[in-house]
Design a protein around this nucleic acid. Structure first.
Lengths: 207, 207
DNA sequence: CCGGAGCGTACGATCGTTTGTTTGTAAGCA
DNA sequence: TGCTTACAAACAAACGATCGTACGCTCCGG
């Protein structure tokens, strides 16, 4: 018999796999149980309900994201440096924790009113901060904005998308992907010397 | 009693609404029936199965997209002109037919093996063509690529995303959104005079 | 020997789908 | 025009399957 904590972790992991591959609605608790080496009834020694399991799998991922964004906002430098940090943080998070992010983004609809509203609110607050940083860089005259909200959407979209396809051990390393996407984002904002800013950030000891 | 064709259309429309709002898996045929002013059994006078209804709603949308892409490939001009046309076509399609595209993208997983494989294949062929156009422009030295595939992903991602939020009568007109996103995409490719190229394309009779 | 953990079984609900029947409407014929 | 026939379409009802969940029993480790 496994220890209770181990079993709970196995359940979460297997559930995450299944939720990622088939979606929450299409995943059966019996499938989760089988994958975890259990019978369906035994799951209830570790979870309160199916929705509770989904929440465990999402596991405050949005809170982690918001927290990292706050850290990124604290970097030294001008508005563009700050924006670059926020974007890099955004892309890195969405690649590094792709599976959980993907599950979170695609299955919010399946949550009941309370938790859903909470998550949606946090996510839109996160996006508003990104947009505000973009606008700040625009106001400072350091970037040439087309439309702040659309730029924010564009960057958010790339995060969502990368969470859908990124896997460890793929064609490019995580660092390369993050660096490339950050370049891409800064290019669309027409930052002066956008590419160089990224390269400098990657090799700060070069000089 | 309505005519058969009208009823079939009402069913498709209401199903599209529900699939868009709640997702295919979470939508009940009884809900569809109620929304269409029918009882659940009556649906089967017009559909073969629930999956068949989903396929009707998706309705060859990927074929339409591929066809429009082919048209865009036929424009006069250099590799960048062609690329610009492909991108604009991409964004316009994803905004104009947002609901159907969104349903198609989020519910492929719920299809059975055959139709799913077909749609996935078409979609990835579509993406490969976009990527090829990007690479062609790069080879011609007209754009400065970071990574052709990532650029393609980036543009695809923006299409998916816009399909999730665009509604008629929003803050910006469809034409503005398309134009802005096209500018954004060309900027990330570092096209020479990217913004001007878009503006010229919007007002070709200016000269 | 006590309690946590797994198992077997079953529950009520709800799903997609099928069936037998009724009903509205349009065409064919007197 | 009136009556009949035919058929598409809507209905009520029920089907088997499957879902999430609950419960009581068994077993093993500390």
């Amino acid at each position: 018999m496994r220890s209770g904590l181990d079993t709970a972790k196995v359940i979460r992991d297997k559930a995450a796999e299944l939720f990622f591959e088939k979606g929450y609605d299409a995943t059966t608790l019996r499938e989760v149980a089988t994958a975890a080496g259990l019978k369906v009834g035994s799951l209830y020694n570790h979870i309160a309900s199916k929705e509770d399991l989904l929440l465990q799998v999402m596991g405050g991922i949005i809170d982690d994201l918001v927290e990292l964004q706050q850290q990124a906002l604290g970097v030294e430098g001008d508005a563009v440096e700050r924006l670059r940090a926020v974007i890099e943080c955004h892309m890195r998070f969405h690649a590094e924790r792709a599976r959980a992010v993907y599950i979170g983004n695609t299955n919010v609809r399946s949550l009941s009113e309370g938790p859903r509203a909470e998550i949606v609110a946090k996510r839109s607050a996160y996006e508003r901060i990104l947009e505000a940083q973009i606008e700040a860089a625009g106001d400072a005259g350091l970037v040439q904005l087309i439309d702040a909200r659309l730029h924010a959407y564009s960057i958010v979209a790339q995060g969502f998308h990368v969470a859908g396809w990124y896997r460890e051990g793929g064609r490019k390393s995580l660092d390369d992907i993050v660096a490339d996407y950050t370049k891409i984002a800064l290019r669309e904002l027409k930052v002066v010397d956008a590419d160089e800013r990224v390269d400098v950030a990657r090799a700060p000891a070069e000089a």
